[in-house]
Structure formats: C-alpha cells, structure tokens
Design a protein around this nucleic acid. Structure first.
Lengths: 117, 117
DNA sequence: CTTCTGGATAGATGGATGTCAAATTAGAGG
DNA sequence: CCTCTAATTTGACATCCATCTATCCAGAAG
C-alpha cells in the first residue's frame, strides 16, 4: 500500500499518457477481465438500461439461453470486481451498476485525458 | 449481416444506452479480452507512449521479466484483435497503436454517450 | 412447521490461456 | 556461403474459466 494511485479526480492516467506501472496494470487487468465476456457485457448493459437502474436476477436470467447457476456465477464475478452491487428485497435480489468503476475503465482506455471534454 | 450496427459516427451505443445485442457483445468481448491482461495493458501503454508512437520489440521485451516468445505471443494477440499493427524495417519489427479501436472500447464503457458528451 | 420459489453454492468437466524451452525464419554482414 | 542477431513459431504443460447438474439457503405463504 506504499504506492497509492493518482488522485483519480482529474486525469486518471490514460494508457497513452504515461507507461502503466506493473501495479497499475495488475490492478486494471482483473477489472477488464470481468468485463471481457459476452454474457457479462450483456448483463451489465441489461442492468444499466433497466428501469430504475436495477434489475432482478429473474429478469436477467430470462434474457439468456443459460442456466440460472451460470448467470449467478457471472453476476458474482461482476460483483467481486466491484462493477455491480446487489440488494435483497424480499424474495428477489436486485443488481445495480456501481458507477465510477466503468467510467474509470473508459477513461483509462481513452486515447487522451478523456474525463473532461 | 442483416443487422448492421449503429452509424458509429455519433453515439457508439454505449453500454448504458440500449441493451447490447448478442452480436454486439460477441464482437466486443474478444477486443476487451485482448486488453484484459496486465502484460498486454503495459505493452499497449509502452507502445502508445514511445517516441513516434511506435516501439521495437526489443524495447518492449526489455521492460518485462518474460521471455521473448511470451512477449511475441502477447503482441500477436493484440495484433489479431486489431489493436496494434506491425511493420518490419530491416532487422527490427516496430509496433504501433491502431487508433480507433481503443477509442471505441472506451466509448462503449462510458456511462453515457461519451464521444460527444 | 411445511412447502414453494428465487437464488446461490459445490463439484465436475471440457476448452481456452499464459508461460517456457527448443526449433525456425528473416535480414545484415562478413 | 556462413554466421550472428532479432523475432516468430511450435509443442508442452499447468492453470484458469464457462458451463452444467445436483444440492443447499432464504423468504413467503399456507
């Protein structure tokens, strides 16, 4: 924990600004890996686009030709990466996007400092 | 090829705009997968930051504690994903970023239509 | 308490992936 | 032609990962 990342409020150090350190790369890669799957991409999109910004697992499962455990596994992967959060309300569990994480990834991949402009 | 993607000039259909179709997700995932590796992230960054926007393989290999074949393998992965291009000049091979692809990924992950804000 | 349903976990399996050592190709220069 | 160096390819190996079936946990409602 000695080396803390850049402030993160301004330039999130896009890839093309300065060479990524080994630590930065090691921190970013798992995030991107969580996103780098067609099912999880669609899950993120479905959650983000759903009414109220949240979606029930049953809604999500219905959108795929996959078994419920598989969807549950992907949701867990996204949650452990910090991309989504879950909340149980009665019988159902709702997922919503954790804002900021996706934006950070977007900023890192942007050709230049992209948060503004 | 019946369903063509959105114009791509304006809104590149970020994830949160409309639910990603199965085809869109299937096309984006391999791109992200190519980026979702700490070594490849640093390779991209090193190439992007290098003088003239290009870097020789020997320069890249020197930046890692990995063997030359391993770096070559990662470069091939990036090249097949369309993220970089290579050019041989004499004995050396130079890699440069293929602009646009990274921008597209960045735009897709952006919270909203981010190209034009 | 019992039962039903939504969702998660456990375990198994086939396929993808990162890494290396060894062999191969491509120029450059005797 | 021979040799040296830069880079890639090949083949092997260990690990990871997406998916499934079977099982388990948590509320809700009888």
């Amino acid at each position: 924990m000695s080396k803390q990342p850049p402030p993160a409020d301004c330039c999130v150090a896009p890839l093309a600004c300065a060479p990524l350190t080994e630590d930065e790369a090691a921190e970013l890669a798992p995030l991107l890996k969580a996103v780098a799957d067609p099912v999880r991409l669609r899950l993120l999109s479905l959650i983000a686009c759903h009414d109220g910004g949240e979606a029930c697992v049953c809604d999500l499962t219905a959108a795929f030709d996959l078994t419920a455990p598989t969807i549950s596994h992907h949701l867990k992967t996204l949650r452990r990466a910090g991309l989504i959060d879950s909340e149980r309300r009665g019988t159902w569990v709702y997922y919503r996007l954790n804002p900021g994480v996706l934006e950070r990834l977007s900023a890192v991949l942007a050709p230049r400092a992209a948060t503004t402009r």
